[in-house]
Nucleic acid binder design. Structure first.
Lengths: 244, 244
DNA sequence: CCCACTCCTTGATTTGGGTCAATGCCGAGC
DNA sequence: GCTCGGCATTGACCCAAATCAAGGAGTGGG
């Protein structure tokens, strides 16, 4: 699927040149390609380097100079912040089509790590920003993404500040199912570890495990294995999740 | 200070027409005015209505159609989300110069309520967005604000998910002091109630009160009254806040 | 096949912060 | 000046989730 971990400049061929970007488009409804005419897209693609990252490897670390921006083409990434004593909060999981490194700061405000095998398009920050100045449509697209990210960040604050363990887990299972755009009752992949889920929900792995057990025992979901589940009773799960 | 709660279209005079906006500029470093040439600013100001809101009054509610965008000219606003059973999470406090209603959705994703006496500039959503399309510089400014808001949302997730009560309160006291751009040892105003602070930090009012007492007893801050404090030992307070 | 290792689950115990209940401290109105 | 009502503080007690501890279960290497 990926060519090892070899990284290489995208070939300049008319179709291939935007593969990295267009794959993103294919997966998610709204994406960068939509916002640009073909020749602008060519120009942008020429800036990109394709990168492959194995599971568990750091993509960048909080505080290091933000030299690159990325689009996620394939795989899942976690973003997190840490305290000096090692406590960690995962602030989000990225899926194909998502944009990474959006920040008007000199350094990254969080760390990014591959959860699964990952394929990225990497853009040098400076040239991407120059390109963006000449293409307001791209800017608009990023603004729109930033505001929907902000909305989900606020939703997550409500979860972290005010929901019980079981409500957190139910909310997580629902939102992850929704994101995979699969039909009702389809199997949802859960690529991250229990420890990642705990750090995302502000809990311990033990509490995550017990809460999983509770929703399984009540017949709201079915765990096919540790990393796949099926939502059996979406409405009752929504109730348990305390969705406003 | 405010002309009662009367609301009125801004006069079209060359200086007055941008008062609402420029007051914002004056208070915060980066603001809308900076991004625009004078005649564009005139045009934008012509769209604005000046609004006054008394403390405790709702400005808009989560879920209602997002017909307006606002800039905060004077006072403090709280933004929050609620669960159906009344549990509430305050996602942020806005100060003069901040932008309100930024969302590419048809309805507001959160409620906004005046904490103090508030003065706003209100823009009809549609005409503001049309104006923005013709002025990429404004779009850029909003993108930059959105990404710094996103960064503080992530910081807040770390607080809500992983910090102890005392760490939360210390972090809050520090960040609020920083925002008021006052010198070391200056008195910081704390206009919101203990209940607002609790809902912002994901705690109860009792725990907020006890944590306040702890940092006061340790001599890290001094409470001049319930709504004003002075940071006495910023470095030790920073340590207690577990700032990474 | 066995061992070692990592990840996950389950149970027992502890604890930080929530809940419940007074009490104190104003400012507003009479 | 007194009372009332809404915050805020303080204390006693309790509980949800953390911590501590003991096994599984799956996986990869020898």
């Amino acid at each position: 699927m990926l060519e090892g971990s070899r990284t290489g400049r995208l070939s300049a061929g008319p179709r291939l040149s935007c593969i990295g970007l267009c794959e993103s488009c294919r997966v998610r409804g709204v994406a960068i390609c939509r916002a640009l005419e073909p020749n602008a897209l060519e120009e942008l693609a020429a800036l990109a380097t394709r990168i492959a990252v194995p599971p568990g490897k750091l993509i960048f670390e909080e505080g290091e100079p933000a030299s690159y921006l990325f689009t996620l083409v394939e795989g899942v990434i976690k973003l997190y912040k840490e305290l000096s004593d090692g406590r960690r909060q995962i602030t989000g999981f990225l899926v194909p089509g998502d944009f990474l490194g959006l920040a008007h700061f000199a350094s990254y405000a969080y760390s990014a790590e591959a959860v699964t095998e990952v394929a990225l398009c990497r853009f040098p920050r400076e040239s991407f920003l120059r390109f963006m100045e000449r293409h307001p449509a791209l800017e608009r697209e990023l603004l729109s993404r930033a505001s929907s990210e902000l909305a989900s960040a606020q939703e997550q604050m409500l979860l972290l500040g005010r929901k019980s363990a079981k409500e957190r887990v139910a909310s997580f299972l629902l939102s992850f199912a929704r994101r995979q755009a699969t039909g009702e009752g389809a199997v949802v992949a859960l690529p991250m570890s229990r420890s990642d889920i705990a750090d995302y929900l502000g809990l311990t792995i033990e509490t995550v495990s017990r809460s999983f057990r509770a929703v399984v025992d009540e017949g709201l979901i079915q765990l096919t294995d540790r990393h796949h589940y099926r939502v059996l009773q979406p409405d009752r799960l929504r109730q348990v999740a305390a969705v406003s």
